[in-house]
Design a protein around this nucleic acid. Structure first.
Length: 258
DNA sequence: TTGGGGTTTCCTGGTT
DNA sequence: AAACCAGGAAACCCCA
């Protein structure tokens, strides 16, 4: 075997590792503000040791059952492979109790970049009501994971400051005010009186948990937080399961006062 | 550093 | 039996 070929084979793994580590450093160094300001992505002054690290081999792996949301928010969806997209769909079905039968998986045999370029209508075509929900989850990851929009006008969600609310009741209110985007998690029972129903309790909890970067959130705990609002008049009791009503101190939910 | 608001976590007991 | 409701207690986190 020629010497140059031996050398090439010898250094090939090293090159692959170098490429991976460079890519990882680039991704890790990215922050939302970096992209929002349209400035350079990488810190140009990375040392060799920062790039190569030590000798351990920490190639990325994804166990969507155990890593929960962390993997999907650690790498921007645009960088997902076809396999990642497929795993993400499976993860969403498991995590949010979506009916996989609704999903036309052939429509999702695409890269992360192509996924990100899909419109809400295309999601609907590909997965019906689940598509609406998947679209919402994806936008949420793009906004709150390692998301980096170059243009804040890019989505309807950001236009409405959707999910920017700091309090739980505002988060709930804003979901109710965007029925086309909340995936049927919440719905009005009596719009005029501010009475609403939680349709998918655990999905709501997961979404709130995602908002707070807390994958241990449950409806049990979320509902405890909602019950605290009875004291402050943000919510009023409705003696029906999963039904709540906005109180006199809640604002922004009335149709004529938005 | 501290104190308060707003949860989050855990719990017991009750209801649907 | 599972899911939900009620509310006490304490921990936690963030912000001013």
């Amino acid at each position: 075997m020629p010497v140059y070929l031996k050398i090439t084979l010898l250094i090939l793994p090293f090159h692959l590792q170098l490429m991976y580590r460079c890519l990882k450093v680039m991704l890790d160094s990215v922050t939302p503000s970096t992209f929002l300001s349209n400035t350079m992505v990488c810190d140009p002054l990375m040392s060799w040791t920062e790039i190569f690290g030590t000798t351990e081999d920490d190639y990325p792996t994804c166990d969507h059952q155990t890593d929960s949301d962390s993997f999907w928010t650690s790498i921007h969806p645009e960088h997902w492979s076809k396999h990642n997209v497929c795993e993400w769909l499976q993860f969403c079905c498991d995590q949010y109790k979506l009916d996989a039968n609704c999903i036309s998986f052939s429509h999702f045999n695409i890269s992360g970049l192509q996924l990100c370029n899909m419109t809400q209508e295309e999601f609907l075509d590909a997965a019906g009501i689940c598509g609406e929900y998947l679209y919402f989850i994806l936008q949420n990851i793009r906004m709150h994971g390692t998301s980096f929009f170059t243009d804040l006008e890019e989505t309807k969600l950001s236009n409405k400051d959707y999910l920017q609310s700091s309090h739980l009741w505002e988060f709930v209110r804003d979901l109710l005010l965007s029925p086309e985007e909340n995936g049927g998690i919440l719905e009005w029972e009596d719009r005029g009186q501010g009475i609403f129903r939680v349709v998918k309790s655990e999905a709501l909890a997961k979404m709130w948990g995602q908002r707070k970067k807390n994958d241990r959130m449950t409806y049990e705990k979320l509902s405890r937080a909602l019950r605290y609002y009875y004291k402050t008049g943000i919510l009023e009791r409705v003696d029906r399961r999963l039904v709540y009503k906005f109180g006199k101190n809640a604002h922004g939910w009335q149709e004529n006062k938005i």
